[in-house]
Every structure is written in C-alpha cells, then in structure tokens.
Design a protein around this nucleic acid. Sequence first.
RNA 1: GGCGAGAUAGCUCAGCUGGCUAGAGCACACGGUUCAUACCCGUGGUGUCGAGGGUUCAAGUCCCCCUCUCGCUACCA
Length: 653
Amino acid sequence: MIDKKPYYITTAIAYTSGKPHIGNTYEAVLADAIARFKRQEGYDVFFQTGTDEHGQKIELKAADAGITPKEFVDNVSGQIKDIWDLMGTSYDKFIRTTDDYHEAQVQKIFKKLYDQGDIYKSEYEGMYCTPCESFWTESQLVDGKCPDCGREVKPAKEEAYFFKMSKYADRLIEHINTHPEFIQPVSRKNEMMNNFLLPGLQDLCVSRTSFKWGIPVSFDERHVVYVWLDALTNYITGIGYDADGNSTEQYGKYWPADLHLIGKDIIRFHTIYWPIFLMALGEPLPKQVFGHPWLLQGNGKMSKSKGNVLYADTLVDFFGVDAVRYFVLHEMPFENDGVITWELMVERLNSDLANTLGNLVNRTISMSNKYFGGVVENKNVCEDVDADLKAVVTSTKDKVVGKMNELRVADAMTEIFNLFKRCNKYIDETMPWALAKDEDKKDRLATVLYNLVEGITIGAILLESFMPETSEKVLAQLSSEKRDLDALAEFGGYVSGTKVTEKPEILFARLDVNEVMAKVEEMFPPVADEEPAKEEEPVMELEIKEEITIDDFAKCQFAVGEIIACEAVKKSKKLLCSQVKIGNQVKQIVSGIRSTYSPEDMVGKKVMVLVNLKPATLAGVESQGMILCAEDAEGKLAIMTPESNMPSGAEIC
RNA sequence: GGCGAGAUAGCUCAGCUGGCUAGAGCACACGGUUCAUACCCGUGGUGUCGAGGGUUCAAGUCCCCCUCUCGCUACCA
C-alpha cells in the first residue's frame, strides 16, 4: 500500500455560550463535505472540530444558572456535539478546550513563549467589555460603548501579559505576499494587510486576572490565559503537539493543517495572531485559511429576541438531514453572504431534490421493474444519443474535483445535479415506453435502462460527500456497488444483470409552500413564545463607578434643549449634528446616534443636554455639548426627554 | 474619512486576459410526452449589462467621473 497523503482540516471551535443556530452549523457541514470529499479522493483525512469553553461570559452565565462553569460547558458542548452528529458530520476529533491535555499544553506554550521573551508582563489600562472579554482604548469606543457589541464598558486596569506581535510582523507580511492562497477569499487578504499589518501591529494581551474560568498561567496563578492563545492552539494540541518537543507521530503527520475553515468574523485572529504564535513556537504555518461568508435569514438577521432563529434540528424535522445539508451548502456562495428562507428551502427541495433527483431515481427503477422485472442488463445496443450522455456522466468527476479544489462546494454540487438533469433528458430522447411496445427493441430498451442506472450510480457516488444518506439510499435502491473516485471517469462499471429494488422508496417528498409557511407561522408567532420572551427584556449589568459627592455632581450642568435643526455629518456614518436651543442660546452638538435616529426624527424633540461640556471637534465638526441617551445591549438608543412638557433651557437637577 | 467589493432578465446570480444576434437556474407562458413524486423534455424575454463621458474597427468586459449598496477599518462628547 502506498501511504496516503495526509489532509488536516479544522473548523473554528464553537463557543459554548448557547445552542448553535443554522449559521454556525453551516461551517461544520461545509467542513464535513470537504473532509468527506478529500477522503473519497484518497487522502488520509483528519477532521477536527470542537468547542471553546473558557471565559468570563461563561463564568457569568453559569453563575446565573446556579451551576459551575464546568457543568455549564459540559451541557452546551454536548448540545453542540449532538447537532454536529445529527447533521452527520464525520469529524475524527471533537476537542474541548477544557480537555486536560489541551490545558496542559496551553500552560506549557505560555511558559515557553514567556521564557523566550515573546510574552512579557505589563499593565493593561483601558475600557473593558465583559461579554466580549476585550479591552478597548478610549479612542476605540463607540459612544463610550464596546465597538463590537455596543454594550457598556467599564474602566479597568489590570496587570496582564502581552505578546510581542510586532516582532514577527515583517515575516508574516512576507509570508502572506509569497503565499497568495493563504487567505481565502483574497479580498480578505487586502483587508488584513491594509487595516492591521501595514499600519503596524499592536501587542496582544494574552492573560486576564478579572475572572477565574480559564487556564491558569502556570507560573503566575492569578492570571488565566486569554481566549486566543487558548482557543487557537486547539488546532495543534488536538493532534498531539507538545511544547517540549515530544509531539506525537500524529502531529508530525498532520501538521501543518491544510485548511482552517472559519467564519469571516475571525479571519484576523487566524491570519495574523495564529501564524505569529506559530512562528514564535517555531512551527510551520497552516496552508490555507478560508473565511467563509455568513448564512443569513431572508427577513432580517436571525436574532433571539425576534424569535426567528433557525436551528438545525428544527429544519431537520421539516426536511430531513440531507435536504438541510443541501440547502446550506447550495445556498452559500463563495464570497458573499447567502440567504436562506423557508420559501427558498421548499423551492430547492421540490425542484432539485424531489423533481430532478428523486423522481429520476424513481422513474428509472420503476421502468426497470416494469419492463425487465428489475434486472438491469447491458445489451450494448448503442445509438448516437448515448454518446453525449456518457460524455456528460464521465466528465462530471473532474469538474467536481476542480470545483472542490477551489473550495467552490456549491458549484461542485451543481455539477452533480447537471448530471442528473442530463439523465432526465436522456429518458425523453430515448423514450423507453415507446421502445417497450416493440419486441424488436427489447435489447435497446435494456441498454437505455442500463445507461441510466450507470449514470445515476456515478452521480450518487459523487454525491456522497454532500448528501451521504441520500447517496447510500440511491445506491442501495439500484443495488450499485461503491467505486473509487478515479473509476467514475469510466462508463460501464455497473454489474450487468444486477436486480434493482422492487419498491423504490420516495427519496424526497414534495412539500407545499403554503402548508409549510402555515406551520412556520405556528412555530414562530409574531410575538415571541416563552423562551425568547424571557430574553426580550434583559437586565443590563451596570458597572458601579466610584462614589462622588453632591459637589461633583453640581459641576455638571444639565438642561432641557430643543432641537431646532439637525443634519447628518457628511464625513461620518454615525454622527448627527444638531442645533439645540437651550434657553436663549443655541449650541451645536454632534452625537453618534444616526443608527437609531434620522435628522428628521430629531427636529422638534426636547432633549436632555449636558451643557457645560468642553467643546470638541468630531469628524471636523465642533460639538459644544452632549445629548444624553440610554442604550440597550443591541446598541439601540433612546433619547432622554422630559416626562411632561418643559421649556427649553429648564435646568435638570 | 481610508482600503476593498459590487450594481447584468421578475428573483438568485455566471460572464477569464475587450470580439459574431449577452448567458444559467428558479418563477411564468405555451407545446410535447406519460415511465415517474401533477413529473420530465422542448420553446418563449423589447434585459437602457447602475448614470454620464472617454479609449478602440469593436466594451457588460479597459480608463475617468457620478450615484447607490455591501465588507473591513478609523472617528464618533
């Protein structure tokens, strides 16, 4: 036996803060399709996925639930694994960042990097966002809120360890420039270069003291390792990396990874921080990082508060596993976000799965039974029309391989369905029912049916990576034997004289759009049902600031102001510039509220203004005060207005 | 504001280094067929290829400019 070439593919590890929706599940299915295909191509594939389980957010959620963080993540990690299993993902390893070997290695890695001077101790001072576990500088804040999630941040100062990113930046730039395939799609490469690498990298904070639920720094127990050094290293610890140089044989075989499959939101961490960590460890870099786009829901983004979040298991109940795999793989383009709606799913199911594929299999088997008692024999009575059918069928394999090499999974599937469509056309061209009426054409009829069964067999084998259950069902109904991928460029592998099933099972039943929509309406009533309702009115955490005296407060002068004019600030996306009448003076105030309010909304409003704030220039426009707003967790704003009508200039105290 | 991507049939999108009458899928209409899950096959579009200029024998395809959308990023009192 020749040694098979190794192929190591990973997904991002899923954060165990809650049940994954269909958008998260997509990544696992996509990785699975690629992994299965590589196996079919003859690679020795190792497919790793798993869960990321540390952090303050989980510590807090567990506390809310009244259980330990470990109990919490055990539960959620289990849910995630169940969904991956439900979707038929063929992972070889499901790693958890709470696994002991992982924790041990992360500690060793941290120590090693510290000892060699890449990690140093310093102090972090800035604004901290608890849910995001991120520090921000004042200048990064959005309206004084976390720029990622829009929630409250609190000033914090803590001793922390930092990683010297800048030290490796030049090497990374060189690597990215000389390996154009490293970041996919390429448009992401430019974003990374222009926004981060070329302007200069900042050192990355790699430890925290503000919470406990993490991997302790071995030589400084007050610190836990910060998320990225913990999470990213799963790709090597999972296959047996050892920081002391005693890595396993498995590690030697599979590292560097061939493909890290990740969401486009974490490209930065995988194409900048991760390669630099690896450089520091003296390990080779992964060959490719693919930041796939998102799967969105048609009518607005999925959100728990809207109660319209699609979960894989819900969809599987409606359509079945393979249909759901088909939807997510087929509707996801390569570079732009894909859209998924119930109507679209029903359409795909009916049109592609039921009509084109299911019906083709069904009619072919049905004819074999009707005309030959189910026995499929190649009588070799060929006609000209056969040539094109055979050409299409035998060329599909290479087309699929080509698309898969470019990670164009949706296009690869389209090629397979083109094969099935060609088979349907062949039936019309040859008209078996007409041949059946003529006893002299018996052998021709047999040949036609043989060609069909052979064509479908090849298509079904190619389908295995994408829709494994369906592939197996079709082959079983046709009594076909599996073949190697290479054999699929040859026509005629089906064993002549084989008997197909007598009673073909319907592969995909057609669904009525209206009925489906009616059920969906029931499941997602306009107003959210019990669980989302509970989450709809969350209480926000308020960070208690230092106590002040009444004198401190008296320094701030608040008053009622009336917006008499308002316009958008041209040079900015978020700013509005308002003319605010306060008593007999008019102040120009710039506010970052365009996300919620349009200029027209603002005019005429009575608002609460901080009057005696030192003027500042924002996006080139002077602002002479501050309009006060409340903000929720999703960044929605509400302007503070007097409860009953008050004159402009009325002091608020 | 910086960088980048995009704007093509009712919908979702292909159209590489410029070249004959601009394509696919879905939807729709009509015709054919009946083996089959009312399915399959065929036929059908007057599409200002976002607007306007330019280069060229020739531009959806290159250049300039404008409008709009999106992504990353910065500012955001």
